[in-house]
Amino acid sequence: MTTHYLVLSALLFSIGAVGVLVRRNAIVVFMCVELMLNACNLAFVTFARQHGNLDGQIIAFFVMVVAAAEVVVGLAIIVTIFRTRRSASVDDANLLKY
C-alpha cells in the first residue's frame, strides 16, 4: 500500500542525486540537495505510517529544521562566492584542496 510512496521517494532521491552530480550551477545543485532531503522526508513519513508510530514523522521535522538552516547558510555562502568570483559554478570554487 505504501510501496508507491517509497518508489516515488526513491525516484525523487535519484533525480536529486543525479542533479548534484551533473549540474554545475551551485543554485541548482543546492535545489537538488533539497530534493534529496525531501525525498528522505517522504520515506520517513511513509515508514511512520507503515509502522504505525510517530518516530519517522519526528525525524522528518528535524530534517526540515536542518534543511531550513542549511538554506540560510548555504545560500549565504553561494551569494558570497558569486560576489567574489562572479560565478555560481561549483567547479570554480575549488580552493579548498590538498
Binding site: V29, V90, N94, L96
Partner: peptide, 17 residues
C-alpha cells in the same frame, strides 16, 4: 594521499555516491 582532495565538490559527491 592528500592529492585525492581535488577541491571539486562534484567529484566528492560522486565518491560519496
Amino acid at each position: 594521499l592528500r592529492r585525492i582532495q581535488t577541491g571539486f565538490a562534484r567529484s566528492y559527491a560522486l565518491s560519496m555516491l
